[in-house]
Simulated assay, not measured.
Amino acid sequence: MAWLFANLGYNLAICARRTSRLEQLKSDILDKYPDIRVEYRGLDVTDYNAIFTVFDAFVADFGGIDRVVVNAGVGESRRIGKGRFNINKRTAEINFISALAQCEAAMKIFRKQNSGHLVVISSMSAMRGLPKHMTTYGASKAGIAHLAEGIRADMLLENLPITVSTIFPGYIRTEINENAKPLPFEVSPDKGSKAIVAAIESGAAQAYVPSLPWSIVGPAMKYLPLKIVTKVS
């Protein structure tokens, strides 16, 4: 996504745990797009106070932030009641509580600016309760989808010019699932990223990506019998 946004001419504020990757990414992007600005900072989103510090530091760097993409997450969870509570707890905390902290930090900035675009990356797994290793993961992604919708409702009630988008990606083959079996309708990182960026750029309140087949499968998952839904997970 960073490469795609750079191609669109955006300055970039990027943060993640592995700063060596960020440093290399910055160098590579600036080699190709020397007219944009790229700043990076290390951030572990389980350090909630650091989220506010890093976001505010980026505001100081650029004089403001136009968009925040809440994308950090983990895909590991286990069947409930099988003695793996610590794994499920970590998944819930990173995917929901850390996302909540990022939304808080972003919205604090946007409210002060009276402008901005909050993007929350949820998942097609948020459509229904799912079995096995998807249970806690899907629940956490459903949680952040509702969180984003609640923030969007606030913006409507307060009539503030702040856009809130919820993106529901289908299966994208990345490091998070590189060792998993082939997944239904999965796409490459390149195709998935392009679909996500296009959805973000559209400013849509919510989007299923890639649009086909997920704009059809996603709404259907909400109403199909659970036995059928579990076959897509």
Results as ranks from 00 to 15, higher is better:
Phe55Tyr: 15
Phe52Cys: 06
Cys103Lys: 00
Val197His: 09
Leu8Gln: 14
Asp44Trp: 10
Ala99Phe: 01
Phe168Gly: 03
Asn177Arg: 06
Gly170Pro: 06
Val59Glu: 12
Gly83Gln: 02
Ser165Met: 01
Asn177Pro: 01
Val217Asn: 05
Gly64Phe: 02
Ser125His: 07
Tyr208Ala: 08
Glu76Arg: 14
Lys132Tyr: 08
Ala50Leu: 09
Leu212Ser: 08
Ile29Lys: 00
Asn86Trp: 03
Leu22Gly: 08
Pro131Tyr: 07
Val232Phe: 15
Gly129Thr: 06
Ala13Val: 04
Lys141Gly: 02
Glu158Gln: 12
Ile151Tyr: 08
Lys132Arg: 13
Val187Cys: 05
Gln113Ser: 10
Leu30Gly: 01
Lys194His: 11
Ala72Met: 05
Asp31Ser: 15
Ile87Trp: 04
Ile196Arg: 03
Val164Phe: 11
Phe85Gln: 13
Ala6Glu: 00
Ile97Gly: 04
Arg173Lys: 13
Glu149Pro: 00
Glu149Tyr: 14
Leu22Phe: 07
Ile65Thr: 00
Ala153Gln: 15
Lys181Ser: 14
Leu118Arg: 00
Val232Ala: 15
Glu178Gly: 04
Asn177His: 03
His133Cys: 01
Ala13Tyr: 00
Val164Lys: 09
Arg173Phe: 02
Ser202Asn: 10
Leu147Met: 13
Leu8Ala: 14
Ser211Pro: 00
Thr53Cys: 10
Val119Ser: 01
Arg128Gln: 14
Ala139Asn: 00
Pro189Asp: 06
Ile196Asp: 01
Gly63Arg: 08
Lys227Phe: 14
Leu4Gln: 11
Val45Cys: 13
Ile144Ser: 02
Ala180Lys: 12
Ile14Val: 13
Asp28Leu: 13
Glu76Gln: 14
Lys191Gly: 01
Val70Arg: 05
Ile65Gln: 01
Ile94Glu: 08
Gly75Phe: 09
Ile196Gly: 07
Phe96Val: 07
Pro210Phe: 11
Tyr33Glu: 03
Ala139Trp: 02
Arg78Asn: 10
Ile36Phe: 02
Asp31Lys: 15
Leu30Met: 12
Ile36Leu: 04
Arg18Gln: 13
Val38Gln: 02
Ser98Asn: 09
Phe96Cys: 06
Ser77His: 05
Leu157Thr: 10
Asn86Ser: 14
Arg78Val: 07
Val45Phe: 04
Ile121His: 09
Ile121Asn: 03
Thr166Ile: 12
Gly81Gln: 02
